[in-house]
Structure formats: C-alpha cells, structure tokens
C-alpha cells in the first residue's frame, strides 16, 4: 500500500513534530510511506478567503506531487476536506476524482482503511478532546451534537486505545475554537474570544493537554494558552498515538 504523506504547509514549517509522529506511526503500522518533496499547500487559505481562482496553481502542484499514490494521508481534517471538496485542476476529471477520493485524514485512515483496533501507545495524562469542525462536520469523523444520529467518534476510538490516557470532554462538546483560517485575523476579536471560551471549559476539567486532529485549531489554542501563561499544552493526536509505540 503506497501512502503519500501530505504535510500541510504550516505543519511543515512550524510543527514538524506532528508530521514526524504521523510518518512514524504510519510506518510502524506497515505502510509504505512516501513524502513528495515538492508539495506546498492545498490552497485552502486563498479559497476560503474568496480567492479560489488563486488556488489553481496549488491544485496543480498537489496533483503533480500526489498522483502516484494509493492513498494520501494528512494529519489535518481541514486540509483534507479542502482537497476532497475543491481540488479541480491539474489532471483529467477522472484523475481529479480519484485523488479527491483517495485523500484521508489520519484518524479516518487508521480506522476505516487500516482497521486499527490496537495501539501500543501510552500517554498517562488528563487530555481534553478538541473536536475540529472540518474533520467532524466536513469529514464526519465523529457524530455531531446537532443531529439525531447514533454517536461515534474515530479520534476517540483511537485515543481509547492509548494506555493511561484519561479523555475529558468540554461542556460544549463540539463548539468551534474560532480559528477559521483567515478568520483568525480578519475577525480577531471573535476568534480569540471563541478560543478563550473553549480553553476555559477544558481548564474546568483540569486537563494537562488539549488534543485534536487539526494543528491549525491547536496552534490558535496554544497561542492563547501561552499568552495566559497556562501550563496546559496543545498536542496533536498523532503525537499521542505515536508516543511510546
């Protein structure tokens, strides 16, 4: 199984640890992992800001880098959702369609494709779960509090396999953290207020870490936590699943 590791640009630049954990995890689970060196960005920042026309070159670059893989896996629900919904350029419609359908967010890849039921991971800490909207409401990684549907959660399923981990949920179990891409600067006041409110609920649970599947949300929450001088750390799910493996 040839797996292309898709490392979103800001993870590559600022959170290499998340990408390393993802890479190591996939390798240890038996995947043949490749990392196309010329990948950059999926184009989401432009498209979500109303400039989808400007993301065409990113589309092409993405296709050039990833057309040779059975699966494309990224530790980011948001970027995966963008590719799945908006990738348009750089190949025939059939190939675009194939690529769109072969791109997976890490936890759904582990659960749905690799069918992981056990992990040799240990993380003996109190961990707060942050559900990222694009992974949840976009990729349906977990059930949504608004819908009358049976409950499920792929990220939680995986976290429950980790030794010693105590998973704690905030009162508003799936409210947005306020990152929202360029929203975080163009609507700075609301963005930060939303982030502060999420953090407040996690603090009430006395967590040591806040985890989630999207580094963008975590970067935003981490920025606020650090400014508050809090000892609580943001950590990507991949880093927990890969710990002590």
């Amino acid at each position: 199984m040839k797996v292309g590791l898709f490392v979103p640009c800001y993870i590559d630049q600022f959170y290499p640890g998340v990408a390393i954990a993802t890479y190591e995890l996939l390798k240890k689970l038996g995947c043949d992992v490749g990392f196309p060196m010329d990948q950059t960005c999926c184009g989401q920042p432009m498209a979500n800001s109303g400039f989808s026309g400007l993301s065409k070159a990113c589309d092409k670059n993405f296709v050039n880098n990833f057309s040779g893989f059975d699966y494309i896996v990224a530790p980011s629900g948001s970027c995966v959702l963008h590719v799945r919904e908006h990738l348009n350029e750089g190949a025939s419609p059939a190939e675009i369609d194939r690529i769109r359908n072969s791109v997976y967010e890490l936890t759904e890849f582990l659960i749905d494709i690799l069918k992981v039921t056990r992990l040799k991971a240990s993380f003996p800490h109190r961990v707060g779960m942050h559900i990222s909207c694009h992974g949840q409401r976009g990729l349906h990684l977990s059930s949504m509090s608004e819908l009358v549907d049976p409950g499920f959660s792929k990220p939680e399923q995986l976290l429950n396999m980790v030794d010693g981990l105590e998973l704690l949920k905030p009162a508003r179990v799936d409210e947005c953290c306020g990152f929202g891409g360029t929203f975080c600067v163009f609507e700075e006041a609301v963005s930060v207020k939303m982030g502060k409110d999420r953090i407040q609920e996690h603090l009430r649970n006395d967590v040591e870490f806040i985890t989630g599947g999207d580094t963008s949300c975590l970067m935003h929450l981490e920025g606020i936590l650090k400014r508050q001088g809090s000892g609580v750390k943001a950590i990507h799910l991949a880093e927990i699943l890969n710990s002590n493996l």
């Binding site: 979500n48 800001s49 109303g50 909207c133 694009h134 409401r137 976009g138 949504m144 608004e146 799936d174 409210e175 947005c176 306020g178 990152f179 929202g180 891409g181 929203f183 163009f186 609507e187 609301v190 963005s191 939303m194």
Partner: peptide, 10 residues
C-alpha cells in the same frame, strides 16, 4: 457578512 463565520458548519 460571508466572512463573519469560521465555516464550522453547525
């Protein structure tokens, strides 16, 4: 107004 949202989908 279309930008007054995080596109969270709720």
């Amino acid at each position: 107004l279309p930008f007054a949202s995080t596109l969270c989908g709720s």
